[in-house]
């Protein structure tokens, strides 16, 4: 077993643990902190189903963003949608036998072109961050670095078209990690770079603004029903004030 394989294999376990345990812990925290008052923003749905529809539209179409900043919406949506397509394409490395729909030509091709779309979106966001004075003002170094990190992931992934690696061996490595019977990771520079950056992203996820992903679902302005007059909505700590 090569040193590279051992390092990357261990890092994979470590990053996966941080990512999933970290997000699970955040979700636990968000879910257990009470929301003591009804604060939905209009148009606030009256039913749980209405809330589900609202969140669906926010998550899938970025509806609020569409109404507030068209360019940010365009670049942001392109990036996120491309991310999803790329994720589908990559499932072929982690499923064995490959899920039937993952091997469809359209899924694989879309996943490939998604890399360009992703780069377009990310560079658009970066340009906006640098050139719009209001956005530049609020940007911390980490805001640029996260964009650059993901641009790095997209670019290194795309470059593997020209610096190919042994895909079969790569898949053996991934499947080996999943079933705890390790095999060698091809040590091509572009692949190692690509994987390394992905691992870094996984590790910082639960400690950064990437928490917006679970956060959106817990946003009281978006996930509450407008039923304040129908029933009391009292938190445990607030009930204590009543005695």
């Amino acid at each position: 077993m090569s040193l590279v394989t051992i390092i990357y294999g261990s890092l994979f376990y470590f990053a996966t643990l941080i990512l999933f345990a970290g997000i699970a812990y955040r979700i636990y925290e968000y879910a257990t902190i009470p929301a003591p008052l009804k604060i939905p923003t209009p148009p606030a749905p009256k039913t749980k189903r209405g809330v589900a529809v609202r969140l669906f539209r926010e998550v899938v179409f970025f509806e609020s963003l569409f109404h507030s900043a068209k360019w940010t919406w365009l670049f942001g949506w392109l990036f996120h949608f491309a991310l999803l397509l790329a994720f589908f394409r990559h499932l072929r490395y982690a499923t064995d036998p490959v899920w039937f729909w993952v091997s469809w030509e359209i899924v694989q091709a879309a996943g490939h072109y998604a890399a360009y779309m992703m780069l377009l979106g990310l560079i658009g966001l970066l340009v906006r961050r640098i050139f719009v004075d209001r956005v530049r003002h609020i940007s911390a170094p980490s805001d640029y670095l996260i964009l650059i990190l993901i641009i790095g992931i997209a670019l290194s992934g795309l470059m593997m078209k020209w610096y190919p690696t042994d895909i079969f061996a790569l898949k053996q490595f991934i499947i080996g990690l999943i079933y705890f019977s390790w095999s060698e990771l091809p040590s091509d520079f572009m692949l190692l770079l690509h994987l390394g950056l992905v691992l870094l992203l996984m590790i910082i996820f639960p400690y950064s603004k990437l928490l917006h992903a679970p956060g959106l679902f817990f946003s009281p302005t978006r996930n509450q029903t407008d039923t304040a007059r129908d029933s009391r909505h009292i938190a445990d700590w607030a009930r204590k004030l009543e005695s």
Partner: peptide, 24 residues
Amino acid sequence: LLKKYRSLRVYLDSCIQCGACTDK
């Protein structure tokens, strides 16, 4: 307050500094 108000905690964590609100 971070333990009493979900809004506060989630909102402090979730801002992506996208700037969409800056002119609102």
